[in-house]
Amino acid sequence: MSLAARRESDEAAATAPSLSERRRRTDKMLRIGLPLVVLAAFVALWDAIVVINAIPTYILPRPWLVLATIVNDWAILGPSLFNTLAITLLALALATVGGVLLAIALTQSRVVEYSFFPIAVVLQVTPIVAIFPLINIYVENDLAKILLCAWIVAFFPILSNTTLGLNSADHNLRDLYRLYGASRWQTLRYLRLPAAMPYFLGGLRIAGGLALIGAVVAEFVAGASGFGTGLASRIIESGYRLNIPRLFAALLLISASGIVIYVLLSLLSNRILGKWHESATRR
C-alpha cells in the first residue's frame, strides 16, 4: 500500500499558516510607523518647551541645533565616534570569543563549572567603575584599559546565556547521540552548539549594548585621568565648556550607535534562527 496516497491529513500542517498578506503588511507598517510618530511627537514637544519658555541654548538647545552640531562639528565628533565604536566592537568580539570558549570549557565537566562559574559571577556583580582604579594601576596601555573594562561588562551575558544553552539540549537527543556512539566533539558540534544558538544570540544582543556602555563608562573614568578621544571625553569636555549642543550631539551619536548595534544583532539573530526557532518564525 502506498504511503504517499495516505498523507493528506498530515500534509495540512505542512503548508505555511495563512495570515493574509495584507494584514501582515499593516502590522509591519504599524511596527515601523508607531515608534516614529511617538519620536516625532517627543521632538516637537522638546522644541515647543524650548521656544515657549525661551530656554537659552547653553541649557537646552533646540533639536535641529543638535543635528546641525553633528554636521558642523563632524571634524571633532566623527573621529571620536569612530574610536568609541572601534572599542565597542573589539570588546564585543573579544567578549564573544571569550564568553563562548569559557562556556564550552565550563560545560565539559561539572567540577569545572562548579569551580569557575561563581568567579565569573563575582566579575559581573562588581561595578566596573569600582574596579577601574585598579586596572588603571595595573594596565599601562590606555586602549587596553578601556578595552578590558568594556570586555568585563560585555562578556558575562554571553557566558551565562551560552552556558545555559549548552546545558539545555534535549535529554532524549543526548541519549540518542550516546546510543549512536557520538564522540564528545560530535555531541558539541552537532547537538549542544546548535541547541545553545538561540540563547547565545540573546546574550549577544544584551552584550552589544553592554559593550557600548562599558566603553563609554571606562572612558569617563579614564578621561578623568588624562586620556580622551572617544565620545565620552567629548561629553565631559563639552560639559566643562558649557557647549551643550555638542554634548547633546555626542549623546545622540552614542544612542544611535546603540540602536544600530541592537538592530544589526537582531537581524543577525533572525537570519540564523529564521528557519527553526519559535522566536524568529512568523505565524
Partner: peptide, 13 residues
C-alpha cells in the same frame, strides 16, 4: 519533505 524543518510538520509526520 526532505528539506522541510520539523516545525513545519504535523505530529504524525
Amino acid at each position: 519533505f526532505r528539506n522541510a524543518y520539523p516545525r513545519e510538520l504535523s505530529g504524525g509526520m
